[in-house]
């Protein structure tokens, strides 16, 4: 860990003024971990935990506004979330451990970084260390020819195949959340689909935040009337493991046909993976096994596998098929 200075910000404006090229710290469940590994080396940490961003409020539109500092456990157990956004509650509770969920925040989880073992090596991206384009652009990617069982099959490039690890984000992608940020140039909103970036040839650029911008809220749109939502996570063991494949579905069935479907997948993408292909395959179709499997096939049609992760394609298809069945039952 590198030496850093620590500031406790009393207001959003003071936080923005103080951060410079440093980092905001909320729950710290990812950031401190990565600082210990020398992956993150911020010169300054601005503690934002006292900012008034810890509320969950109903919006006049019927949606829900989630403060960036709302803890994962508080969000998961909130009555409105459980009642109207079950997919989000289920996704949060499938992640990490109770201890971590009590610390981790909504804003922090949006910025959770990959669990790629090569990326997390202290000397990755340095001479003698593993190649990592996220750590040092241009050095290459050790995972391509390394142990890549948990790596992504969708949205990859020849520069990076790191999986986005968040469960929460997969649910928010399906819910079409909107992210509010505030920075040196003022406030703006970012559609969830535009927030995370695929690696392309710039895998070190992971999201749409400008330097110094702070996530303040996440808005969930008004719940779709008559829709059900489900999150399903598949992994080797029953708890405390990142997804090998997961699916978040919001769906509405009328007269046996699918009238509304939003589909996102986790564990398989380099970002929380919204599948418009699956949604197109579902729109207006009868809610039956053949439709679900066709949607799953469509979702994974673009998959590119590596030496150890080919199984994820079939696993993700089964995951999505089952999730669609549950969401339309």
């Amino acid at each position: 860990m590198q030496t850093f200075s620590y500031i406790k910000a009393a207001s959003i404006s003071k936080a923005l003024a103080g951060v410079g090229s440093g980092k905001f710290i909320a729950g710290g469940t990812t950031l401190v971990d990565l600082m210990k590994l020398n992956v993150e080396q911020p010169a300054t940490l601005v503690d934002i935990n006292v900012l008034p961003l810890d509320k969950i409020e109903k919006l006049p539109t019927g949606g829900l506004r989630i403060g960036a500092l709302v803890r994962n456990s508080d969000l998961a157990w909130h009555p409105d979330v459980k009642a109207s956004y079950a997919v989000l509650s289920q996704a949060l509770l499938s992640g990490a451990s109770p201890q971590l969920r009590n610390m981790a925040t909504t804003g922090g989880n949006l910025l959770q970084r990959t669990r790629c073992a090569y990326f997390r090596e202290p000397n990755a991206g340095t001479p003698g260390g593993y190649a990592c384009n996220k750590r040092t652009p241009g050095t290459g990617c050790a995972a391509l020819e390394g142990f890549n069982r948990t790596h992504a099959v969708l949205g990859t490039s020849d520069h990076c195949i790191a999986t986005h690890p968040s469960d929460m984000c997969v649910a928010m992608a399906a819910l079409e959340a909107v992210i509010h940020v505030e920075g040196p140039k003022g406030k703006r909103t970012i559609a969830f689909a535009d927030f995370h970036k695929v690696p392309g040839d710039t895998p070190h650029l992971e999201n749409a935040l400008e330097p110094g911008e702070l996530v303040t809220y996440v808005d969930l749109p008004r719940p779709v009337e008559g829709a059900r939502s489900v999150y399903l996570k598949l992994r080797d063991r029953a708890s405390y493991e990142f997804a090998l494949a997961s699916a978040a579905v919001v769906a509405k069935v009328e007269g046996g046909h699918i009238r509304y479907a939003r589909v996102a997948m986790g564990g398989v993408g380099t970002k929380p993976w919204r599948s418009h292909e699956a949604e197109a395959a579902l729109a207006g179709k009868p809610a039956n096994a053949a439709t679900f499997r066709a949607a799953a096939e469509a979702a994974l049609a673009g998959a590119k596998t590596r030496s150890d992760n080919a199984f994820k394609v079939e696993l993700a298809k089964r995951c999505l098929t089952r999730t669609l069945k549950l969401a339309t039952a």
């Binding site: 073992a117 593993y130 020819e145 390394g146 063991r237 029953a238 708890s239 405390y240 493991e241």
Partner: peptide
Amino acid sequence: DPRSGQPINGSFADYLVATCAD
């Protein structure tokens, strides 16, 4: 890792042991 010889899953997140839920 076949190149470095490092135990590449050397953490409790990556080396899986049974949890209580299992």
